[in-house]
Nucleic acid binder design. Structure first.
Lengths: 324, 324
DNA sequence: GTGAAAGCGCTAACAG
DNA sequence: CTGTTAGCGCTTTCAC
């Protein structure tokens, strides 16, 4: 350690001065800091990580980052972890999980101090590798009684059912769903349909599936198809705010009044939702909170503490606005 | 290396089997691969990086990831680099660059094989550290004759001027600008204003500044303020599509017809732009291409090749649609 | 509070 | 094509 020579102390003292300054005499600390400043020394964390087997690296895996609902989580995760001295490695698995397995190996190879995954891990192979690696794992954006390790999420079934009840309580009688075909959206859609069928206060048209990641255009294109086959439809639950926006724009273009003739409900509560015309009724998930809590779990685990409450349901809320 | 024992070869042969399979006999290769499969071995890249001083890590620094125009770049960057065997570390510097310096030290400490920065590096201190580190750097989303190292971007001055000409050519006579107060948006706004002033074919109101990152709400709130002070305004150049969307929604709410009474131009060509009503005229930057090219630069450099053309102007294009 | 010795797991360099 | 030797730069451990 060059900086140790410059400061006239042993390497280990320099190391301690940088990581645990209170375990070093004021004098030594001062000299090390001077030497650091003079030489522009930056500690090599590859070497540090190898020696201590604490890489201070956390991996985050999301299906995709472009235009998605996971941004708030990633944002909160990186900021929270950076503040705690960690860096975040970002991986995109693709909505079909095609890249998940290879990504996982690449990630485990870095010996991160934690892995945050979007969704619950389904592939048995991947689960096994993760468990074998011994790396703390936080699954997010979903709920399962048997997580790989830790979990911060919410129930898509409950969410879908709650939206169904909302729709029925607000007097709609002919519901419809436009949903992405990814695992989680699918479960919300299914729960929505089941709840309405069971209750019987309304009818529900077969789900219109679109491919993830969803966009505005799909909403515009799907609404006419839906209305053609099910003209009685008086409300649509969309699996994303972007879809809902597309539906609203298309409805507007066709002179279909929202919410009187057609109720529209989104998912995500993206920043634009409240500003639409009428403002969008939607489901809000506190993505930033997921990120913060996931970060917290990992930092806690890295500090050697055991996390007793390993499943955290952060819930959802239906934000009732003008569109339904 | 446990896996080497299992395969009955020396550690270095196992290492070669994994990184340069063609430099190893078919027999040895097979045995190593079997051993890997049986033991679930994953190579420790911390150790590898330390030994080879090639970490196969690339850092990306963006102001913020939430709701931003940089997503396509980050997306393309991670995917391209993952395919080349690299991982991407994500850092968020904040629009005020407040975190940039500390982030930079944390990043340099990881000894990444490359750093991709959004914007050009202004702080002299940071520039110096970066150069001293010897790490390949790609600055993006901007143009300067003297980049730290490599550059993939475009000219905000040219872009602003081009939009100004577009506005004048389309018969607008009283232009206005709503712009984020970040460095790059500011330069576009300034060039827009200067070009119109110099030409004289139109007047231009003082720029309405809003704080970055921009959102739809700011657009809605700013339009009335603008029209109050400058009722003659017949066109608005917004520094982001979200601002433009806010302006269009507010115009709609107030019964101001777009584009006949008010032309609206955005920036970014986000996915919703083409689907608005009327579709949004905007400036398109190929963010994904920036990401790919930046990745290419770094991979090339990591392969030991010298990059002779180190400044790449990927340009901009004005997408003329219905709103102006 | 400080240091000496050893080693984290891998790969560069050289030799065979 | 394969192996030996050495060492990347740090931290752990144990002693003082």
């Amino acid at each position: 350690m060059q900086v140790a020579r410059l400061a006239g102390v042993s390497p280990i003292t320099a190391s301690r001065a940088l990581s645990t300054p209170d375990k070093v005499s004021a004098d030594a600390l001062q000299r090390v800091r001077d030497a650091v400043k003079r030489s522009g020394y930056v500690r090599n964390m590859l070497a540090g990580g190898l020696a201590s087997s604490r890489s201070r690296l956390v991996a985050a895996i999301v299906p995709t980052i472009a235009g998605s609902v996971f941004l708030d989580m990633v944002q909160a995760l990186t900021v929270t972890l950076n503040d705690a001295g960690y860096q975040v490695m970002l991986g995109q698995s693709g909505y079909d999980n095609s890249r998940e397995d290879s990504l996982l190996d690449a990630i485990i190879g870095r010996r991160p101090d934690g892995i945050v995954i979007t969704g619950v891990m389904h592939s048995a192979h991947a689960r096994q590798r993760l468990i074998a690696s011994g790396i703390p794992v936080v699954e997010t954006w979903d709920l399962t009684p048997h997580p790989v390790d830790m979990l911060v999420g919410f129930s898509h079934e409950q969410t879908g059912a709650a939206v169904a009840r909302y729709v029925m309580e607000h007097g709609y009688r002919h519901a419809a769903v436009i949903s992405a075909n990814d695992v989680r959206a699918r479960r919300r859609a299914q729960a929505f349909v089941d709840t309405i069928r069971e209750d019987g206060a309304a009818t529900v048209a077969p789900v219109q599936w679109v491919s993830a990641p969803t966009n505005l255009k799909q909403g515009r294109l799907t609404l006419p198809r839906l209305l053609e086959r099910h003209p009685e439809t008086d409300s649509v639950f969309c699996s994303s705010d972007l879809l809902a926006l597309g539906v609203m724009i298309e409805a507007h273009a066709r002179g279909i009044p929202v919410p009187s003739r057609l109720g529209v409900i989104g998912f995500g509560d993206l920043s634009f939702a409240a500003e639409l015309h009428p403002p969008l009724t939607t489901v809000r998930i506190e993505g930033a909170r997921i990120g913060e809590r996931a970060a917290g779990f990992i930092v806690q685990r890295a500090a050697g503490e055991t996390v007793e409450q390993r499943i955290l349901d952060i819930g959802y809320s239906i934000v009732s606005r003008g569109s339904a």
